[in-house]
Design a protein around this nucleic acid. Structure first.
Lengths: 149, 149
DNA sequence: GGGATTCATTAGGCAACCTAATTAGTTTAC
DNA sequence: GTAAACTAATTAGGTTGCCTAATGAATCCC
């Protein structure tokens, strides 16, 4: 015997906000557990992806974009530096700043990690129609806008 | 001087997967920091919302639906029980199981919390068109499907 | 040149996840 | 009908990723 009604009926259908928040939370847990195979945490991976895709950032820039406080980002960077995926360089124009750069090893790791994410998501998405995938792309942009609003 | 190119140009535009994952991660951080005002963590809140919306669950059902392992869910439930928002009841038909039920206090808390989430999101969404909001609703369902696939 | 500001970092703490092992109850198979 | 296998919840202990507060160092501003 189960103690909860089937989904899709009842009050769950209304109340879009909670549905969105809940879905996001569940997807993130799913992703983190899938990626546990990786040698790198999802938080670290996202920072490294950004450095690879968008080039060098200062610590402050990174923490702002990822929406964490500077000490949190510093900790993430410390791990990545220790693992050899990121390098610190002094800013020649401003001695307070530090420039963070993905190493070649870091780039390679992201190449593979990205491929793996793609494969996993394709599997998960294979039940989705073409329209639904487009929708998901638009939604990603929208969610980003809300997060950064 | 900044060390990263403007967004929206360069390689960031392609590569939908990473965009989606990144946006989700950022939104969740945003939500967690906004809700820090609440007396309850976002993880706990999501479980309580589920109990209020969908009625009693066993621990196993809850952990499965929220995509965490049973010990993690147990810890979350312990907090909620200590705070008086959830009650444990023995299953009369199966002595191994425990039935988890939101208390009246829990219900009231969620009523208010839900209202607050709604208000915040409406603010964040006020820059969105009607179509975009509909899209977001569809996306929530889709993301949930991926998470549970 | 000196006070206020900005950027990175250190220190210490907390929330939320995990795995492995334990306890207790139920089901299965003989 | 009882022993073995299984299932559910829980306990113990560890990690990651976030936070605030405080420190150190460089730059800005007047």
């Amino acid at each position: 015997m189960t103690y909860c009604e089937p989904l899709g009926t009842g009050p769950a259908v209304k109340d879009l906000d909670e549905n969105l928040v809940s879905a996001i939370s569940r997807l993130q847990r799913r992703l983190r557990s899938e990626k546990a195979v990786d040698q790198i945490g999802e938080t670290q991976r996202l920072v490294l992806v950004r450095l690879v895709r968008e080039g060098p950032h200062t610590l402050g820039e990174l923490s702002e974009r990822e929406r964490v406080k500077p000490p949190s980002m510093n900790q993430t960077i410390n791990s990545l530096v220790e693992l050899g995926y990121v390098e610190r360089q002094d800013d020649p124009n401003d001695g307070r700043k530090v420039i963070l750069i993905a190493t070649e090893t870091g780039r390679l790791l992201i190449d593979e990690s990205r491929r793996r994410l793609y494969e996993w998501l394709q599997g998960a998405l294979s039940t989705l129609s073409e329209d639904e995938r487009d929708l998901l792309g638009d939604a990603a942009a929208l969610i980003g806008r809300i997060a950064d609003s």
